[in-house]
Design a binder for these strands. Sequence first.
DNA 1: TTTATATTAGTAATTGTTCCGAATATTGTT
DNA 2: AACAATATTCGGAACAATTACTAATATAAA
Lengths: 130, 130
Amino acid sequence: MLYKKSKQRDRILELLKTTGSHPSADWLYEKLKAEFPRLSMGTIYRNLSILEKQGLVKKIDFGSTYDRFEANITPHYHFICEVCGAIKDLELPVEYQLEKKVEEETHMTVHKHRIEFFGICNACMAKKGS
Amino acid sequence: MLYKKSKQRDRILELLKTTGSHPSADWLYEKLKAEFPRLSMGTIYRNLSILEKQGLVKKIDFGSTYDRFEANITPHYHFICEVCGAIKDLELPVEYQLEKKVEEETHMTVHKHRIEFFGICNACMAKKGS
DNA sequence: TTTATATTAGTAATTGTTCCGAATATTGTT
DNA sequence: AACAATATTCGGAACAATTACTAATATAAA
Ligand SMILES: [Mn+2]
Ligand SMILES: [Mn+2]
Ligand SMILES: [Zn+2]
Ligand SMILES: [Zn+2]
């Protein structure tokens, strides 16, 4: 797919580059609707997705579109399969000193942290090979 | 609030305890609807939320209910304020050797990882104090 | 058994996101 | 400059996950 230029897309990227915050689609829409009175949310989402494909923008989400639950309440990290969405518990030791480091760096209070590793699980790797 | 017992809630917790997967609300519903023919999704969600308040279940989500975007494409970690939802970039060095460790432990392919720290930002801390 | 209230089923409402078709803008070609 | 090809836009409908509401039911205590 070839990309033609679009004033809307340019401005979305510009806004994202100049803001330190990590805005939502709606925030971008509100900021730009004065400039483009007929702007629509579809345009925001479509261009964000194009910019992401171009590697110019990153989306921060959970990967999954729905919440997931577990009864394993002991602290642990997760591996998430990018193909099938499976989530696996890891045995990797939980590194609480990271929280200390962040508190020193930012002088903010840290209550907890979370690490997720993304990749391809064994089952999906096997299928892919076949 | 006092909790009365409920067969539905007991079974939801039991299912979560015996499955290694990290199910969605819908997965639980599908598993239990034979047992409770009049089960509804509202019951699933309400009980998951009660079990979470009781500390018996953890919800895996992104914190935010909507996607957020950024143009900072250099690898970095995030601090997320539990009060106002602000996301801040951290300077903490990115530790790629963690990915190696996970690959050794699981024999799966790791493409990337993400770390989020949750706590209270300076602005919210100041407000709280006042 | 009576009373109080937490829980349920069922459905409606809400929210964030994606999808669609007709009109418009951009780009390359004559 | 005019034309053709097609990417992009707007606007609204469709969608999916979650939450909210209400009357009926289940639970616990008196
Ligand atoms: Mn887990
Ligand atoms: Mn960031
Ligand atoms: Zn997989
Ligand atoms: Zn805050």
